[in-house]
């Protein structure tokens, strides 16, 4: 039987209350959101916090809204609500396409976007989406709040810039009129982590790609993105040849590791092929096709 080690527990009623409780319990306290990464790790003793500060009942942390030229997603927004969000579906179908292949409906009922970002699993789909879209994260601590680019949010596997005593409160994604977006993933079975994934947005204007973002998970892409692939495409016509060249540059910028999900050369091949498929669909969508 897997049971977490003894742990203190406190339910926070607001962000301020959560920060106070984190301070009170010290560096070994952890925030628990949906708990679908943290609790399994606690059962296996991969994580052994002294205290859990539960932020599930803080309404201000959940929900999707538009603020100016950004879409703001609260950190406690559950996967299901990201999947069902009309706002996200309208501006960035990449979210719905990614969410459909994240875990399963039961896990999506509990797991949250903030928890997924903070877990920083190398195969995290939403981290790839966030880096593709060049979003930002709002991190709140005792000294106030700061905004961090998602392409600098992760410091390595399972490591983020969120320090002890701090909480991720929101994710922000710039709205890009005319952008098309898409997400591609190969997994071994329903609900599994990806063998490789790629998500992109593309803006085609005047017959050329004026803007794009390429994010990847599970293939050893620094900060879940490929500026090399993007540079290869910007200013070019979205022809099959140019999209393939960008996909090749993307795959070349990744350093996948061999593991039980597959050998490195297979993952590199997938990084190329999935990026190409995503670019094709996003470019077509941007051109209204």
């Amino acid at each position: 039987m897997q049971t977490p080690a003894p742990v203190d527990y406190a339910k926070a009623t607001s962000v301020a209350d959560a920060l106070a409780k984190l301070a009170e319990h010290g560096e070994e306290a952890r925030v628990v959101a949906g708990g679908h990464s943290l609790l399994p790790m606690m059962k296996l003793r991969l994580a052994r916090p002294d205290a859990l500060i539960d932020i599930n009942d803080i309404p201000e942390l959940a929900g999707v809204r538009i603020e100016g030229d950004e879409i703001v997603v609260g950190a406690m927004t559950r996967h299901r609500d990201v999947l069902d969000s009309a706002v996200l579906a309208e501006h960035y179908p990449i979210f719905r396409e990614a969410e459909r292949v994240i875990a399963d409906p039961l896990v999506r009922n509990r797991g949250t976007i903030g928890g997924s970002m903070c877990q920083a699993d190398p195969a995290s789909d939403l981290s790839a989406v966030g880096s593709a879209l060049k979003g930002t994260a709002v991190v709140v601590g005792p000294g106030g709040s700061r905004t961090v680019a998602l392409r600098g949010f992760h410091q390595g596997p399972y490591e983020t810039v969120v320090g002890p005593g701090e909480i991720l409160t929101e994710l922000r994604y710039p709205i890009r009129p005319g952008a098309g977006s898409a997400y591609e993933k190969v997994e071994r079975r329903a609900g599994d982590w990806g063998v490789a994934t790629s998500g992109v947005y593309v803006v085609v204007s005047g017959g050329v790609v004026t803007d794009c973002g390429i994010g990847l998970a599970a293939v050893g892409a620094d900060h879940y993105c490929s500026p090399e692939g993007e540079a290869a495409l910007i200013g070019k016509e979205p022809t099959e040849e140019n999209l393939a060249a960008a996909a090749a540059a993307t795959a070349a910028s990744c350093s996948p590791n061999a593991d039980q999900r597959g050998p490195a050369d297979y993952k590199s091949h997938l990084a190329h092929e999935l990026t190409l498929r995503a670019l094709r669909r996003a470019a077509r969508a941007s051109q209204g096709a």
Binding site: Y9, G35, D54, N56, L106, V107, N109
Partner: peptide, 11 residues
């Protein structure tokens, strides 16, 4: 519907 092995009873 949720998986009750991945939620604390106090929650």
């Amino acid at each position: 519907p949720v998986k009750s092995c991945t939620m604390l009873a106090v929650q």
